[in-house]
Amino acid sequence: MGIFKALSTGIKRVNKNKRMWFFLLVVNILVALVLTFPLYSALKTSIGDSLMGERLTKGLDYRWYDEFLYKFQDSDFINYFRATRVVGSGAFFSNVDSLVTGRFFQFGPTILVLMAVYVLLNILFAGGILGIFHSPEEKFTIKGFFSFGGTYFNRFFRLFIISGILYGVLYFLFVPYISGIINRIGGTADSERVAMVLGLIFAVVMFFLLFLVNMIFDYAKIRTVVGNGKSMLKETGKAIGFVFKNFGRTMGLYYFIGVLGIIFMVIYSVVEPQISQVTPLLVLLAFVWQQVYMLARIWVRLTFFSSQLNLFMGLQKEKKVSETAA
């Protein structure tokens, strides 16, 4: 099976399950609201009945922004209200940066706890997503979704632990080791360019390794669902074998979907500044556009699962056919 066939069939299956996208979006919104309410309250208190309300409707007033951050400097999540995160493509760049450098470990405990809860929820959801995509009906129902989620949660959680060990090696051994090398070389280099180029190479390698680990564990999950595997170590080993045996196709598919995600981000970033947000309607429109982008991100995540499932099953079928023919 080729990657485009896997992708097109995968997209069709994802598109058939629009209710699943919306379900995942609603969960995402609800979890985000847990901290958005206190943030909203802080904003409301800060702006109060001052004329700042007028100015902040039109744009961002630096002096208010600065006073707001100063006032809430001790909060471990309100001070994440940074212009470079909340404007345009800022969210994308800041989050990808945190992912690659592992800087998210330094985030405040409130945000980390929320992130942990969301990751756990999505371990549950991963079972639901793959279970539904692999079921003959391929149709999303809440009952079916949670039933599959419950079925695979224990196994996926074990996969999460195994993958966590690998990510831990990357973040706590590889990153400091490479950073040390870069600092050492950069410290004796003739120009800052050396350290920057090394940093860039490091980022590319880190992206590659993170994506590789991520992809392996996607296939480990897929194998678990397709073959009802019980030993997660065994499934991980087999997934590694599968990925490397079909390296071109697994990587090609993974990166192709990744590029789709980047295209969505670019479209979002181009359109978002055009919405001036000076009236309630325009604020609502901007919010809707943000949610459209979040839906697109969820769609990309589902497409990863769906297309990789297709690729895996297609290649398994090809293997069986060739074994039978032999």
């Binding site: 995402n28 901290l35 943030l39 209200f81 994308f92 990808v96 945190s98 943000q290």
Partner: peptide, 12 residues
């Protein structure tokens, strides 16, 4: 800010 947080959660 909520959008950043949503994106953050989705990234992770």
């Amino acid at each position: 800010w909520m959008f950043w947080l949503q994106h953050f959660l989705e990234t992770f």
